[in-house]
């Protein structure tokens, strides 16, 4: 029983990080109707930004998070303004190609700058743990989970309580109507892409103390983000949290009790089941 609880707890904590990867993708899709194929690469940019500050300036990865988020946000706004805004009225495949291209260019730039070896950082809490009764918690994963909860809470507050949040939700529901109400949807799109990039970069910073960074690992995370988003419902931010947790727990239980060789397959099987039974996602409403 203890072992089962331990495995579920691990799944929930890992799922929290999956959630934050998925939320950015979901938000971007909700407002911009763009499937961002560069999302995983944005996460890797976050990892390498953190790595840069850790290796060169010896700053703790968790302390540089505000800076990483800022860099991610600014990069997102600039990319949206100069590369995505000009094709906002173009057919859907144009944005797909554009985000694929952005991902390729960014990962190759990282390759030039940081080389091709997997980069692993060693912090004092990378392997430290704390205990609650017989259950062991990874310190790095706990910090990541707590920060994820704080950020998701903050994001929910912004979306629900502020003018900016209302503008974002209005643009997501009906961009033309929002425009007629005086909302600058162009600005909203830039901001949303910036927030999406910042959230992915944040996930990268949170993951770096536990995992390795490699310029070409982005697509692996993009796939995770897609699964989370589809599980939760495309464009549904709250759903992405549920999707992330579900994916984390499914993978953990499957890897522990069935076979670790098929760890990713359990998540994908859940993904297919949801698509078959609830095409709009577990927490999504179908759009007309």
């Amino acid at each position: 029983m203890v072992q089962f609880v331990q495995i579920v707890v691990n799944g929930v904590f890992t799922g929290g990080v999956y959630a934050i990867i998925g939320i950015g993708l979901s938000l971007i899709f909700g407002v911009m109707r763009i499937v961002n194929f560069a999302h995983g690469v944005f996460l890797v940019v976050g990892m390498f930004t953190t790595l840069f500050f850790f290796e060169r300036l010896h700053v703790d990865p968790f302390l540089v998070i505000p800076l990483v988020v800022l860099v991610g946000g600014l990069l997102g706004i600039v990319l949206e303004r100069f590369l995505l805004e000009p094709i906002v009225r173009a057919p859907e495949h144009a944005s797909i190609l554009m985000t694929v291209g952005i991902g390729l260019v960014l990962s190759n730039l990282l390759l030039f700058a940081f080389g091709d070896a997997p980069q692993i950082i060693n912090t004092r809490y990378s392997t430290s743990t704390w205990h609650l009764g017989p259950i062991t918690f990874s310190t790095a994963l706990t910090i990541a989970f707590v920060l994820t909860v704080v950020v998701i809470g903050g994001l929910a507050l912004i979306l629900e309580r502020t003018d900016l949040g209302r503008s974002i939700r209005a643009a997501a529901q009906n961009a033309d109507a929002a425009e007629l109400q005086g909302i600058n949807t162009r600005r909203v799109r830039s901001l949303v892409f910036g927030i999406g990039f910042a959230l992915a970069a944040l996930a990268g910073a949170l993951l770096l103390p536990q995992l390795f960074a490699h310029p070409s690992i982005g697509p692996t995370y993009t796939l995770k983000a897609f699964v989370v988003t589809v599980l939760g419902g495309m464009g549904n931010v709250a759903g992405a949290i549920g999707g992330g947790l579900l994916l984390g727990v499914t993978e953990s239980l499957g890897a522990a009790y069935v076979s670790s060789s098929y760890r990713d397959a359990f998540g994908l099987a859940a993904f297919l089941l949801v698509l078959l039974l609830r095409p709009a996602g577990l927490f999504g409403r179908s759009r007309t």
Binding site: G11, S138, S252, S260
Partner: peptide, 19 residues
């Protein structure tokens, strides 16, 4: 057992081995 390469959360399988 073999594990899938990629995202490396080995905790579930390591807990099994521990058990």
């Amino acid at each position: 057992q073999a594990y899938d390469e990629g995202l490396t959360d080995f905790r579930p399988v390591l807990n099994r081995i521990k058990d």
